[in-house]
Simulated assay, not measured.
Amino acid sequence: MSSAILRSRGRITIPAQVRDSLGLKPGDRVHFFEIFEGQFAMIAAIHSVQSLKGMIRKPRVTVSVDDMNAAIAAQGADT
Rank of each mutant, 00 (worst) to 15 (best):
T13M: 15
R57Q: 12
T13G: 10
T79Q: 15
G54E: 03
T62P: 07
G54V: 06
R19A: 11
V61I: 01
A71F: 04
M55L: 05
R60M: 09
R29H: 10
F32Y: 10
Q50W: 02
A70N: 08
Q50N: 07
L52N: 01
V30E: 04
M1C: 08
D20K: 14
M42T: 07
R7Y: 06
T13R: 14
G54C: 11
P26R: 13
G10T: 08
V30F: 05
M42L: 15
V30Y: 06
F32K: 08
F40Q: 09
P59F: 09
M1E: 05
R57Y: 05
G10I: 02
M68E: 03
A70W: 09
G76C: 08
S64W: 07
K53W: 02
Q17E: 15
D20N: 12
I72R: 10
D67S: 10
S48A: 05
S2I: 03
T79G: 15
I56L: 15
N69Y: 05
V63S: 04
A70H: 06
Q50M: 00
R7P: 01
L6D: 03
M1Q: 04
R57K: 15
A71P: 00
A4Y: 07
A71K: 08
A44R: 11
Q39K: 14
R9L: 15
I56F: 10
A4G: 03
D28V: 02
V65H: 10
V30P: 01
D28M: 01
M55Q: 03
T62G: 15
S2A: 11
R57C: 08
V18N: 10
G76T: 10
S64E: 11
S3E: 06
M1T: 11
D66T: 05
P15Q: 06
D28K: 01
L24K: 13
P26C: 07
I46T: 13
I56Y: 13
A44N: 09
R11I: 08
F36R: 15
A70M: 06
T62S: 13
A45M: 11
F40Y: 13
V63H: 12
H31E: 14
H47C: 00
V49I: 02
V65P: 04
G27T: 06
